[in-house]
Computed example of a mutant assay.
Amino acid sequence: MGELSAAPIERSRKAFSMVLQAMQDPGTQRNLAQVLGVSESTVSRIKNEKLEDALALIYQLGFKVVDASRVCVDRSKYEAMVTIARAAMADEDTARRLIWEEEGA
């Protein structure tokens, strides 16, 4: 099932899995505890007892969690860019110039 058609709860579960995976790196829970000013056991309790529900709430409200390295754009602007790119790639001459021309040519 595509990311756009998945129900909010399914997307929140995927986000939960990604967050848990990010927390697997050694020292992450210790660092989180230090930054939050709580104990490691508090971070562990949040992770095990509250995180999944918090993410479900976020997704039900229409928000999402993304990796900090991602760039988010307005959906209508994204769709416009996709339409333009698709049209450019459909034109054989344009596609050839985009793919085969060397830089500076």
Rank of each mutant, 00 (worst) to 15 (best):
M1S: 05
M1T: 06
M1G: 12
E3N: 09
L4D: 03
S5W: 06
S5D: 14
A6S: 11
A6Y: 01
P8E: 07
P8F: 04
I9T: 15
E10Y: 12
R11I: 04
R11T: 01
S12Y: 07
K14G: 05
A15I: 00
A15H: 02
A15R: 07
F16M: 03
F16K: 01
S17C: 07
S17M: 10
M18W: 06
M18L: 13
M18C: 07
M18A: 15
L20T: 09
Q21A: 14
A22H: 04
A22T: 00
A22Q: 00
M23N: 00
Q24N: 09
D25Y: 12
T28G: 03
R30M: 12
N31F: 14
L32H: 02
L32I: 09
A33E: 01
A33P: 03
A33Y: 05
Q34G: 09
Q34M: 12
G37P: 00
V38R: 10
V38E: 13
V38T: 06
V38S: 10
S39T: 15
S41W: 04
V43K: 00
S44G: 05
R45W: 04
R45A: 12
R45D: 07
E49N: 15
E49K: 14
E49R: 15
K50I: 02
L51C: 04
E52K: 10
D53Q: 12
D53P: 02
A54Q: 12
L55D: 03
I58D: 02
Y59C: 01
Y59R: 09
L61A: 14
L61W: 02
L61R: 13
F63K: 08
K64I: 02
D67K: 05
D67C: 06
A68L: 11
A68I: 12
S69Q: 08
S69P: 01
C72L: 11
V73H: 04
D74F: 03
D74C: 02
D74A: 08
S76Y: 07
S76P: 01
K77C: 07
E79D: 15
M81G: 04
M81F: 11
M81L: 14
T83Y: 06
I84T: 15
M89L: 14
M89W: 12
A90W: 00
D91A: 08
E92C: 00
E92M: 10
D93R: 13
R96L: 10
R97T: 11
R97L: 13
R97Y: 10
L98H: 03
L98Q: 07
L98V: 09
I99S: 00
E101R: 09
E102A: 11
A105E: 11
